[in-house]
Amino acid sequence: MGSADPERSGGYPSSWERPTVFYSKNIKYLVYGAIGLFVLWSAWELRPSPARLIGGADAATSLLATMFPPDFTPEARGRIWTGMVESIAMSIVATAIGVVISIPIAVMAAENLVPRPVYYVGRALVSISRSLHELVLAIVAVVAVGLGPLAGVIALVIATPGFFAKLLAEELEDIDEGQADAIRALGGSPVQVLLYGVAPQVIPRMIGLIIYRWDINIRASTIVGIVGAGGIGVTLLNSFDRYEYDFSLAIILAIIAVVMFGEILSAVARRRVQ
């Protein structure tokens, strides 16, 4: 190429800077630098002493030694069974109640179905429900209604709209407006519009979402007991408090088995429905 020929390459700039998502290269480096410093500072705040790490290694060894083999004696199996049944029952009841509560919230949070102010209230309810971890809800519920599965059910019920109402609202926003309009044109009331113009379009997806949420609630129901809200989590926390780590491992294995079983069941069921 006649690169050195000024007549041909003349007029072309000899430098080029890659466009960045930031406004300029300097801001880019500044942002990266700031992030780097922040992470370093976080790590510094946390710096573990060598003694702690060494102690940790010892503790880990003895923990592992006590954990194996996991305690699956008939007595232990009985306790796991009792706790697990309670967890699963909690997840089913909470899903049922949670879905019933979520449906009106989902309608409120669907932009195309309700007036603006209602929409904002709906979105806010979804956001709050989504932001609080099940365990935060559970610890508050325990304070309000006392230890036991009721607190767990309440926690899971409150957590349900954050997922279920959000996704159902998205389904509602995607519906074919023509069908709803047809019912309106026939002089249908708003409730009739929902029942005949909207519901038929979203029910198959909704059933899928219910199963999905139930799957999530199973996971949550196995841990809310750690703050006293019933289920297998209570058994797990007790085993830790009593240093029965072989029993803890058995419980955790049982939890993993149940969670995976729930996941497979939910995947199969959703595929059949949709």
């Binding site: 190429m1 690169s3 041909r8 390459s9 072309y12 700039p13 000899s14 430098s15 080029w16 890659r18």
Partner: peptide, 17 residues
């Protein structure tokens, strides 16, 4: 660092044209 040679950049502009 995308620190390309000046001449290469110039040639690149030209060849793109």
């Amino acid at each position: 660092r995308r620190n390309f040679d000046d001449e290469d950049v110039q040639n690149a502009y030209e060849i793109l044209d």
